[in-house]
Simulated assay, not measured.
Amino acid sequence: MLDRVNPSTAVKKAVLYRMVTAEHTCPYGLKAKDLLRRSGYEVDDRHLTTRAQTDAFKVEHGVKTTPQVFIDGARVGGYDDLRRYFGKPVADPKATTYRPVIVLFAMTALMAMGVSYAVFGTPFTVRALEWFIAFSMVVLAMLKLQNVETFATMFLNYDLLAKRWVPYSYIYPYAEGLAGVLMVAGVANWLSVPVALFIGGIGAVSVFKAVYIDKRELKCACVGGSSNVPLGFISLTENLMMIAMAVWMALASSGLMLGHQM
């Protein structure tokens, strides 16, 4: 009697064509191979080792990109198509998201608590809160400065001062970074406080007007010019944090508030 093959235990096989040359290994090919293996497939991994071979493959199968996956003799498609085949979500590069700012604020909060623990032996101090805001300002400035031209273009969509004086759109990230660094160090409050108050105040009014009065739907330039973070509450929070930090440090410097641990 012949043994019956249990379909649930049968080896699932897939054929993967991906570009692998001396100059380039397709990252989506590697991701497709990994996804297939994690999904229980035995992968027949076929390399396209030259540009000519790759172009010939595209013409033969009528496709524009590689990698290409075949399962049970039928073409599934590229990496995104493979994710859809397995019922997995596919990211939309044009979709709006708050992930960049959520990750940013989470990491700067952890950084602030880490420094507080190293200095004071506890992560929960007033100074940790100050460092959180200051670190956030520095990181936000860094993201803007990665491509200041793109940031300035987005910023001009809604900032009231930048619309009247374009150079301000280029000055803003440098001013934010400078104020943040000085606040991290706790020095030169005479400079950091007015700078933070100025840019934070104008920014808060600009965002409030654009979003809540004019009802405009815009992308926020707060985490750089290439993000899909919508302009709104998060952008307003960034500016309000700068204002709050500036007021706090101004009062602390005046001796009206005990803001630091000795």
Score class of each variant (00 low, 15 high):
Thr9Val: 11
Ala128Arg: 01
Met19Arg: 08
Phe57Glu: 00
Pro230Tyr: 03
Phe198Tyr: 13
Gly225Val: 01
Tyr28Glu: 09
Ala244Cys: 11
Ala204Gln: 06
Ile133Trp: 05
Thr50Met: 02
Arg38Tyr: 01
Val5Lys: 03
Met142His: 03
Ala134Thr: 03
Ala196Arg: 10
Ala152His: 07
Asp34Lys: 14
Ala32Glu: 00
Cys220Lys: 09
Ala128Met: 07
Thr150Ala: 15
Met183His: 14
Lys215Arg: 15
Met245Arg: 04
Pro194Asn: 01
Val181Pro: 07
Met249Arg: 15
Ser116Gln: 00
Asp44Ala: 13
Phe57Pro: 05
Lys209Leu: 14
Asn147Thr: 10
Gly200Lys: 06
Ala185Met: 14
Asp159Val: 12
Ser136His: 10
Gly77Met: 08
Arg127Tyr: 02
Ala244His: 05
Tyr98Asn: 10
Tyr168Arg: 04
Leu145Lys: 09
Pro93Thr: 01
Leu161Gly: 12
Ile171Asn: 04
Thr50Cys: 11
Ala252Lys: 10
Val211Cys: 04
Val181Leu: 15
Ile202Ala: 05
Val195Trp: 01
Val11Arg: 15
Ala250Leu: 14
Thr96Met: 11
Gly62Gln: 00
Val20Ile: 13
Ser254Ile: 03
Leu30Arg: 13
Ala74Arg: 13
Ile71Arg: 09
Tyr17Val: 10
Leu161Gln: 02
Gly177Gln: 01
Lys219Pro: 00
Tyr172Ala: 12
Met242Pro: 06
Val207Met: 09
Tyr79Glu: 03
Tyr158Glu: 06
Met245Phe: 08
Pro7Gly: 02
Pro67Thr: 03
Tyr28Leu: 09
Arg37Gly: 12
Asp44Thr: 09
Leu110Asp: 01
Asp81Arg: 11
His61Asp: 01
Phe57Val: 03
Lys163Pro: 12
Met1Pro: 10
Arg37Val: 14
Asp80Ser: 11
Asp81Tyr: 02
Pro123Val: 00
Val139Glu: 07
Phe151Asp: 09
Phe57His: 10
Asn157Thr: 12
Val195Ile: 15
Ala134Gly: 08
Glu217Asp: 15
Leu256Ala: 15
Ile199Glu: 09
Met142Gly: 15
Val69Leu: 07
Val43Asn: 06
Leu251Gly: 08
Gly177Asp: 04
Arg38Ser: 11
Lys88Ala: 03
Lys144Trp: 12
Phe198Trp: 12
Gly62Asn: 11
Tyr174Ile: 12
Met19Glu: 01
Ser227Gly: 14
Val148Pro: 10
Val59Cys: 01
Glu60Pro: 00
Leu231Trp: 02
Val59Ser: 12
Thr97Lys: 03
